[in-house]
Design a binder for these strands. Structure first.
Lengths: 216, 216
DNA sequence: CTAATAAGTTAGGTTAAACTAACAATATTA
DNA sequence: TAATATTGTTAGTTTAACCTAACTTATTAG
């Protein structure tokens, strides 16, 4: 039930992502320090992220990103990185301004523009070889089915599941390339009703989370 | 006393600018329709724009942009136009996405990045000849002195005044190229105390409005 | 293993930007 | 010109994102 994240909430996600590189258990105080906000503001924001299934947290406990949160944070990180690189290497903007502008533009830029930007950077050979740009393109252009609002139409791009879960989804007829529509989403995003190949399916949230959709 | 405008308020300014091309007397209802908000929201926003000296309006009367409002609106228009052109012509993004992204990016992009973007568009000969790009650069990189917060340091880029007003400003020692610092600003932005060439000057708002500052 | 310190939460307040509903002023038209 | 319609304002809510201050729970140091 992510639907859409405000810039402010995206900033929290990004900071949590950064901090969890040093220590996967992130604390409220560190987030507050990084974002220059009061602890109470963080508590509130974390509640929201929790409700949207982007972080795990219990009372007085540390914060960890969920798989979903990880994905959304990674999207932001790559947007930031690519925009910043473009500003520095193509436009020759100072590093400082590039960072600041990237921080703001990353929250509003469309996927289409991001893909076009990647193409430009690729054509000029400005991309580091240590990032798998094809994976980044897929990351940016897809959403986990568990994040989509009722009514959304798209195409299954990938089923990120193995073993039993994968088998079950295949059996239901969930395969890459299929068109899909989200019919209904229960409170808390579980379960999710969808239509694939004319069939109505009801998926558990953890099943839906494994399915990557490219929105039309 | 503009100091800074939120994206929402910038949108109002832009719409007023657009509408005033057809008819210089803009009405609340038209703005509401264009922005898809309630009339009461517009009334409120206009009050703010009025307080910031960007529009003129009296009770139940039509809205007109002030000189200041005109300048700020023009900045936004050019940002929009240039970003959109870049997205379409350089990145080959669809016209629709280019418009949407430009609408969002224009509110957050820095002047430095805008100037760099212009340079790129110039070097590729993508700019229409009917816009005076040197004037646009000056427009984007300057602010009217009447909009600056106390403490701001900058350089006088131009004195946009003629006749008596120009003569008086020259006499005070206000000339292009001088460094300037805003010392104090009275409530309602009138008068404004500044330092130029070591001298303390007190300017009326209409005098300050004519002085364009490039912020350091 | 307490006592002091730090971390997290709760309660209550503020601001910007929206909203609806009711009302007042202005325009239109019959 | 009176009746109607349109336009603009006011009052009162709502939501997101912040805040401070007071409090509770954890952690750390003697």
């Amino acid at each position: 039930m992510t639907y859409s994240l405000t810039p402010a909430i995206q900033d929290y996600l990004e900071v949590i992502h950064d901090l969890s590189k040093h220590d996967s258990k992130v604390r409220i105080t560190d987030i507050a320090r990084k974002l220059n906000v009061a602890k109470s503001s963080v508590t509130e924001a974390i509640e929201l992220l929790h409700a949207k299934n982007l972080v795990q947290k219990e009372r007085y406990g540390p914060i960890t990103l969920t798989r979903n949160g990880e994905r959304e944070a990674a999207k932001l990180k790559y947007k930031h990185l690519l925009i910043s690189k473009f500003l520095r290497d193509v436009l020759n903007v100072t590093a400082d301004t590039a960072e600041k502008d990237a921080c703001l533009i990353e929250h509003v830029v469309s996927v289409e523009t991001m893909l076009a930007l990647i193409q430009l950077l690729e054509s000029k050979n400005y991309l580091d070889n240590d990032i798998d740009i094809e994976e980044v393109k897929i990351l940016l252009s897809t959403n986990s089915l568990s994040n989509l609002a009722p009514g959304t139409k798209g195409t299954i791009k990938r089923v990120e599941a193995t073993g039993e879960l994968r088998r079950r989804l295949m059996e239901m007829g969930v395969t890459s390339g299929d068109d899909i529509q989200v019919k209904r989403v229960a409170p808390m995003g579980d379960p999710i009703e969808i239509t694939v190949k004319g069939y109505n399916l009801t998926l558990r949230k953890n099943e839906a989370a494994a399915i990557l959709i490219e929105i039309n």
